[in-house]
């Protein structure tokens, strides 16, 4: 499958916002953006052993003057709850893009609890959320949530809905 337009636009929007450090715990929905990051010599693309590591890495990078973002899936959101206390306490900007599972057309029941709990958990830790349901919403969301994060020192998450990603075609995204 050719690279889906919104994924290309996501990568371009991240780069336009000066983001050159992308950490991730691999996910099929992010696979093409991860590939594009790996292919760009100007971008450090880092595989985390756990999502909380990514939040702390982004915090450290920003301490050193570098802008980063993390790509993760909703099933990993539970791993960052405690980690968000640090950028929250220190007023350090955070930008994450979450591929949603456990909602529109989910086939795996194990994905449902954390997927359904994701918005409330992130909001409880002080994150600002934007949920994209349509492909055309993604790139503007990345641009504007990056501004909210880095210009206004906020913790920001973009949720890519399962309707957008396509539950049935989920494995296709990685091909």
């Amino acid at each position: 499958m050719e690279v889906i337009k919104w994924q290309k636009e996501t990568f371009s929007a991240l780069r336009r916002q000066g983001i050159d450090l992308v950490c991730h715990v691999p996910d099929a929905g992010h696979a093409k953006v991860i590939e594009m990051c790996e292919a760009d010599n100007e971008v450090d693309c880092i595989t985390c052993t756990s999502e909380e590591e990514g939040i702390h890495m982004l915090s450290g990078a920003w301490l050193g003057g570098r802008r980063g973002a993390m790509l993760l899936q909703s099933s990993g959101v539970g791993n960052i709850i405690n980690a968000l206390a640090m950028p929250n306490t220190c007023r350090i900007p955070i930008l994450i893009i979450v591929t949603m599972r456990g909602e529109y057309g989910e086939f795996n029941p194990w994905q449902v609890p954390m997927g359904q709990g994701t918005p409330a958990c992130l909001e409880a830790m002080g994150m600002r959320l934007y949920r994209a349901e349509e492909p055309t919403q993604v790139a503007p969301a990345v641009e504007n949530m990056a501004r909210l994060a880095f210009d206004s020192q906020q913790l920001c998450a973009i949720l890519l809905s399962q309707k957008l990603l396509g539950a049935k075609d989920f494995r296709e995204l990685a091909k």
Binding site: L21, E52, M57, S59, G60, A61, G64, R66, M86
Partner: peptide, 13 residues
């Protein structure tokens, strides 16, 4: 968090 903050900082500096 200390090691991963250090990792991010090392990559930035």
């Amino acid at each position: 968090a200390a090691c991963s903050i250090g990792l991010g900082l090392a990559l930035a500096q």
